[in-house]
Amino acid sequence: MPGGGPEMDDYMETLKDEEDALWENVECNRHMLSRYINPAKLTPYLRQCKVIDEQDEDEVLNAPMLPSKINRAGRLLDILHTKGQRGYVVFLESLEFYYPELYKLVTGKEPTRRFSTIVVEEGHEGLTHFLMNEVIKLQQQMKAKDLQRCELLARLRQLEDEKKQMTLTRVELLTFQERYYKMKEERDSYNDELVKVKDDNYNLAMRYAQLSEEKNMAVMRSRDLQLEIDQLKHRLNKMEEECKLERNQSLKLKNDIENRPKKEQVLELERENEMLKTKNQELQSIIQAGKRSLPDSDKAILDILEHDRKEALEDRQELVNRIYNLQEEARQAEELRDKYLEEKEDLELKCSTLGKDCEMYKHRMNTVMLQLEEVERERDQAFHSRDEAQTQYSQCLIEKDKYRKQIRELEEKNDEMRIEMVRREACIVNLESKLRRLSKDSNNLDQSLPRNLPVTIISQDFGDASPRTNGQEADDSSTSEESPEDSKYFLPYHPPQRRMNLKGIQLQRAKS
């Protein structure tokens, strides 16, 4: 015994090295194993092979420090690593049964499904019991997946119906949107047309105001020219009257000059006056001389005659003075006559000038009245044309509004008919989907599995289990394997941990 101590140590070291070499393959693929292994699927088989106990299973599945599946799978690998070579062998058998691809990844061999460990530990009855539990578990999982698949199909059909409904609603909204954009385009076109009409109206108003201003300026210029013409006519008439007055005065002077006595007659009258003065002096001298030589009687007679002569001279002087006064009065009367005649001529000139001015103003008033009548006639014609244009424009607008209203009513009726057609199509689609759903539900009910399987069917299934373990590994792997896509769409199922009653199965096998 003492001599065998070193050999035992060498043997233990060799086993430990082999164990480390075995687990080295697992550690190399630890990331892939932790990512894809579900500990809840492996722990029943590991407990059946007595590699882990209930406490280890509870620690792996329910520990609060292991929230994710990767953490739980890593903890399970750590626990199996502590179990040595047996933990490695049982772990590979569980991978061979549940995850053939991972088994091939770790060992590089094809899975054979021999279950040597569980046969050694529990015997064939334990293997049968384990396989029966796994089959029931798989059936329950398949039923749950079928239910989930039916629910998802129903949800899918519902979503398809909602999608069709949303599509129809979208078509309806597109119809309304198209109608909205069309009405918006019509409104924009009408606004552009309105702005264009306003611009045209403004341009016409500006043109009309400009023409009116030009016409008023032309009328004012015409009036100024007419006033200048009238003033020139007035000056012409005044000059004609002055010329006529000057002509009359010149004719009067000419007549006075023609009626003036001649120079010879004046000289002859002056000679006669001198001769008479000479004779008068001679007679006076004779009379003076006679007075001195005459007697007293003759002197008395001469005195009487002288007195008579003096009286006659006085009378004559009075007559001469009277004649002079009369001549002066006649001259003054002639001057007054000439003055009055001049005033008369001036008044006649003024009267004729005023008459011509009156005629001029009368003509001017007639011209202004004619212009006013023409302006009123043009204004009435413009008003009439404007009223006709406004009436025609309003009539066109009324007809346009009428046609637009008819078009809008027809478009609304068309839209309502399209919407009604879309709604009826939606109703038809809904009815078809309901009919299809009812038909599929009836087919699913016919094809669904019963909840409680008979014992004979279970025994028959387990009677055929042994050949399947040898020759149909691919079928078992397809039913027991969970793909990543299934984990996305289906909830994980945790079967209840219970042991099955095998009395009925044993009785059935005894009868057979």
Results as ranks from 00 to 15, higher is better:
59 E>T: 00
109 K>S: 10
123 G>K: 14
21 A>V: 10
16 K>R: 13
55 Q>N: 06
19 E>A: 12
110 E>A: 08
141 Q>G: 12
58 D>Q: 00
118 I>P: 15
83 K>R: 12
121 E>L: 05
144 A>V: 10
7 E>S: 10
13 E>H: 12
7 E>L: 14
127 L>R: 08
28 C>P: 01
32 M>A: 08
4 G>Q: 10
62 N>Y: 15
69 K>V: 03
69 K>T: 03
55 Q>M: 12
9 D>F: 12
51 V>A: 12
72 R>A: 00
138 L>M: 05
8 M>P: 11
137 K>R: 14
53 D>Y: 05
46 L>Q: 02
31 H>Q: 06
139 Q>M: 10
29 N>W: 01
113 R>E: 15
104 K>L: 02
81 H>P: 04
119 V>L: 08
36 Y>S: 10
44 P>T: 04
96 E>Y: 06
132 M>F: 15
94 S>V: 10
94 S>F: 02
75 R>W: 05
111 P>G: 12
8 M>D: 10
77 L>Y: 02
123 G>S: 15
87 G>K: 01
109 K>L: 15
38 N>W: 06
26 V>P: 08
98 Y>L: 14
39 P>G: 01
121 E>A: 10
10 D>P: 14
22 L>G: 07
10 D>A: 10
48 Q>N: 05
145 K>H: 09
39 P>Q: 01
119 V>A: 14
31 H>E: 05
79 I>C: 03
62 N>V: 01
121 E>F: 06
73 A>Y: 00
110 E>V: 03
117 T>V: 07
24 E>R: 07
25 N>T: 08
78 D>G: 01
111 P>D: 02
142 M>L: 10
144 A>L: 13
131 L>V: 06
94 S>A: 05
30 R>P: 01
80 L>M: 13
90 V>Y: 11
139 Q>R: 10
37 I>F: 02
34 S>W: 00
8 M>S: 14
41 K>P: 02
118 I>R: 10
79 I>T: 04
87 G>L: 06
65 M>D: 00
78 D>N: 03
108 G>A: 05
30 R>V: 00
4 G>K: 13
63 A>Y: 10
144 A>F: 10
48 Q>I: 03
127 L>S: 12
103 Y>F: 00
107 T>R: 00
61 L>R: 00
125 E>S: 14
136 I>E: 10
104 K>R: 10
57 E>Q: 01
16 K>N: 11
7 E>I: 09
15 L>M: 13
5 G>V: 13
102 L>M: 01
54 E>P: 05
116 S>H: 07
10 D>T: 13
129 H>A: 07
128 T>N: 08
54 E>W: 03
85 Q>V: 07
14 T>E: 12
46 L>R: 03
14 T>C: 12
144 A>M: 11
88 Y>R: 10
105 L>P: 06
11 Y>K: 09
58 D>F: 01
110 E>N: 15
35 R>C: 04
55 Q>F: 11
92 L>W: 04
38 N>T: 07
16 K>V: 11
125 E>W: 13
75 R>I: 00
8 M>K: 13
24 E>N: 12
146 D>W: 09
55 Q>P: 07
76 L>D: 02
50 K>N: 08
64 P>M: 12
64 P>T: 08
27 E>I: 03
127 L>D: 06
132 M>A: 06
81 H>D: 02
13 E>A: 11
119 V>N: 15
76 L>A: 04
79 I>E: 01
75 R>C: 05
56 D>L: 01
146 D>A: 09
133 N>H: 15
31 H>Y: 08
81 H>S: 07
65 M>T: 12
90 V>R: 15
62 N>G: 01
48 Q>H: 03
79 I>V: 06
12 M>L: 12
12 M>Y: 09
62 N>T: 11
23 W>E: 11
52 I>V: 05
63 A>Q: 02
146 D>K: 07
55 Q>T: 05
41 K>I: 02
63 A>F: 08
76 L>E: 03
25 N>F: 08
138 L>D: 06
144 A>H: 12
27 E>G: 06
42 L>D: 00
111 P>L: 02
29 N>I: 01
82 T>V: 09
27 E>D: 06
34 S>L: 06
17 D>L: 13
80 L>V: 08
136 I>L: 15
128 T>Y: 09
85 Q>W: 08
71 N>P: 02
50 K>Q: 10
19 E>I: 12
89 V>C: 12
51 V>T: 06
37 I>W: 01
38 N>Q: 10
130 F>N: 10
19 E>H: 13
113 R>L: 06
118 I>D: 15
34 S>Q: 05
104 K>T: 07
59 E>A: 00
7 E>P: 10
96 E>S: 09
85 Q>A: 08
128 T>S: 05
95 L>Q: 06
137 K>Y: 14
73 A>F: 00
106 V>H: 05
24 E>I: 10
18 E>T: 11
21 A>G: 13
63 A>T: 05
85 Q>F: 07
31 H>M: 12
65 M>P: 00
23 W>A: 03
101 E>S: 15
81 H>A: 08
38 N>F: 06
24 E>Q: 11
53 D>N: 03
113 R>F: 03
128 T>G: 08
35 R>F: 04
93 E>Q: 14
51 V>G: 02
20 D>P: 09
18 E>F: 11
12 M>I: 14
77 L>E: 01
129 H>E: 07
23 W>K: 08
6 P>G: 13
49 C>Y: 15
121 E>R: 13
47 R>K: 01
38 N>C: 04
123 G>F: 15
41 K>S: 04
78 D>E: 03
76 L>N: 01
63 A>W: 01
116 S>D: 12
54 E>V: 08
125 E>Q: 15
92 L>A: 05
61 L>K: 04
70 I>T: 05
17 D>K: 12
79 I>M: 06
97 F>Y: 12
96 E>W: 01
135 V>P: 06
20 D>N: 12
57 E>K: 01
20 D>E: 13
66 L>F: 04
81 H>V: 07
93 E>R: 11
108 G>T: 03
52 I>F: 07
47 R>P: 02
43 T>G: 04
136 I>Y: 06
5 G>P: 12
44 P>D: 01
109 K>N: 04
45 Y>W: 06
82 T>K: 09
43 T>L: 02
46 L>K: 01
127 L>F: 13
16 K>S: 09
33 L>D: 00
69 K>Q: 02
137 K>L: 10
82 T>G: 12
137 K>Q: 07
115 F>M: 15
121 E>K: 09
125 E>P: 13
118 I>V: 15
61 L>C: 00
93 E>F: 04
22 L>K: 14
45 Y>G: 02
132 M>W: 08
20 D>R: 08
35 R>D: 00
138 L>I: 06
142 M>K: 11
48 Q>V: 04
40 A>L: 04
71 N>M: 10
81 H>L: 05
105 L>T: 12
46 L>M: 09
42 L>R: 00
69 K>A: 02
